[in-house]
Simulated scan of single mutants.
Amino acid sequence: MKIKQINMKSIDEIREEMIETVTCSKSDIFRISEKCRQDYDNMTTELDNIKQMMVKLNDEGDQLEKQVHHARVMLSEVSMNIKKYSEEEVRDAYEKAHQLQMDLSINWQYKKQLLDKRDDLERRLFGLVDTIDRADQLISQISVVMNYLQSDLKQVGEVAKAKQDFGLKIIEAQEEERKRLSREIHDGPAQMLANVIVRSDLIERVYRDRGVEEAFLEIDSFKKMVRSALYEVRRIIYDLRPMALDDLGLVPTLRKYLRTIEEYHNHSKISFENIGLERRLPTKYEVALFRMIQESVQNALKHANACEIKVRLEITNSSISVLIKDNGVGFDITQKKPESFGMIGMRERVDLLDGEITFDSKIGKGTAVLIHVPLIN
């Protein structure tokens, strides 16, 4: 993208636009954080209700076990002295023992369902806490950016041109990130979490109206939905910025990320091979390379329906090479059509590092993405 020369008035206009954009981003992230907090409160209340029900069920179970024991003793007495009792008394003893045993079995099954539901809620609450913490960190970081943007830029002098290039890139990146984050949380975890309460009520109705087997089928479906929500939340956290990238570096973070993605897409095999040096890189390289590999893998899973993805990384003293190859549906690279935002973003990241990226794909033959970036010491 070419940027024309601008004057100081234009710089002020850009600064104001940046402030407005960052302010909107901060508001959106704040709303996301508040929505997560509301979901957290709702699930905490539901978890408390489950714990109260568990106490009640435990008390009922203790009473039932005593009654079952008494009924068994009575049944043993009737069996040993059957001639002393009438046919109706014998039948009543057997029926009462059988009914109490059935009630106790149902009590156990219901407690197991509640235990599973409690465990799922606790796992989701843990994920929400991570999302809320990350949102709070983002709000703090945006506040720092706002402080810089609102400072006096009138005396920029010789750095006006540098501010121009830097400012426009921040506007584009910030706006795109805001839209993507808002859209993904709204369409993904937010929708799934909204369905949690509805599905919980549905399971209770199915259990009452259709019996235990139908209820278990509904619970299996419910678990799949919760797992999907948990995966989406974790993926969004990785999209924001994987914490392991700062602590461990690119190679260990990629191993962990690709292993996690493979676990949640059990229909796809994702392999990772590092054939070069395993060392820390400057932050700009690690972040950019991780994002490009992440984008390629997500494209292969979501759009190419790939069942096998290979990621190969080679770090030398002078350059970095990455190959991401899948066996998905592919696409016709000769067909002229607007590039996806993902591909545009990858090209821009490579350009910022003075690197090169190529896409090799054929319909039905999969796709290969090759990235080469020189290391400047």
Rank of each mutant, 00 (worst) to 15 (best):
residue 257 Y to I: 10
residue 257 Y to K: 04
residue 258 L to V: 11
residue 258 L to G: 03
residue 259 R to E: 15
residue 259 R to L: 15
residue 260 T to H: 12
residue 260 T to G: 07
residue 260 T to R: 07
residue 261 I to N: 05
residue 261 I to E: 15
residue 263 E to V: 11
residue 263 E to C: 15
residue 264 Y to W: 09
residue 264 Y to Q: 02
residue 264 Y to G: 05
residue 264 Y to A: 03
residue 265 H to E: 09
residue 265 H to I: 08
residue 265 H to L: 09
residue 265 H to Y: 15
residue 266 N to R: 10
residue 266 N to S: 15
residue 267 H to P: 01
residue 267 H to C: 02
residue 267 H to F: 08
residue 268 S to K: 06
residue 268 S to Y: 05
residue 269 K to C: 12
residue 269 K to T: 15
residue 270 I to T: 03
residue 270 I to A: 06
residue 270 I to N: 02
residue 270 I to R: 05
residue 271 S to V: 07
residue 271 S to Y: 12
residue 271 S to R: 07
residue 272 F to Q: 13
residue 272 F to D: 12
residue 272 F to V: 10
residue 273 E to Y: 10
residue 273 E to L: 13
residue 274 N to T: 02
residue 274 N to I: 04
residue 275 I to W: 03
residue 276 G to P: 03
residue 276 G to W: 01
residue 276 G to D: 10
residue 276 G to S: 04
residue 276 G to V: 06
residue 276 G to T: 02
residue 278 E to H: 05
residue 278 E to C: 11
residue 279 R to H: 09
residue 281 L to N: 05
residue 281 L to C: 02
residue 282 P to W: 08
residue 282 P to L: 08
residue 282 P to H: 10
residue 284 K to M: 12
residue 286 E to C: 06
residue 286 E to R: 08
residue 287 V to E: 09
residue 287 V to W: 15
residue 287 V to D: 11
residue 287 V to S: 08
residue 288 A to C: 05
residue 288 A to S: 10
residue 290 F to M: 11
residue 290 F to Y: 14
residue 290 F to W: 05
residue 290 F to S: 08
residue 293 I to V: 14
residue 293 I to S: 03
residue 294 Q to N: 10
residue 294 Q to R: 03
residue 295 E to T: 05
residue 296 S to F: 02
residue 296 S to P: 00
residue 297 V to C: 04
residue 298 Q to Y: 09
residue 298 Q to F: 07
residue 298 Q to W: 08
residue 299 N to D: 07
residue 299 N to Y: 13
residue 301 L to K: 02
residue 301 L to R: 02
residue 302 K to M: 15
residue 302 K to F: 13
residue 303 H to C: 00
residue 303 H to I: 01
residue 303 H to G: 03
residue 303 H to P: 00
residue 304 A to E: 01
residue 305 N to Y: 15
residue 306 A to H: 05
residue 306 A to T: 02
residue 306 A to C: 04
residue 306 A to Q: 06
residue 307 C to F: 07
residue 309 I to G: 06
residue 309 I to Y: 11
residue 309 I to P: 07
residue 310 K to A: 10
residue 311 V to K: 10
residue 311 V to D: 11
residue 311 V to Q: 05
residue 312 R to A: 13
residue 312 R to Q: 14
residue 312 R to Y: 09
residue 313 L to N: 00
residue 315 I to H: 05
residue 316 T to R: 00
residue 317 N to K: 07
residue 318 S to T: 15
residue 318 S to H: 11
residue 318 S to M: 12
residue 319 S to W: 09
residue 320 I to M: 08
residue 320 I to A: 13
residue 321 S to G: 06
residue 321 S to M: 06
residue 321 S to K: 05
residue 322 V to G: 00
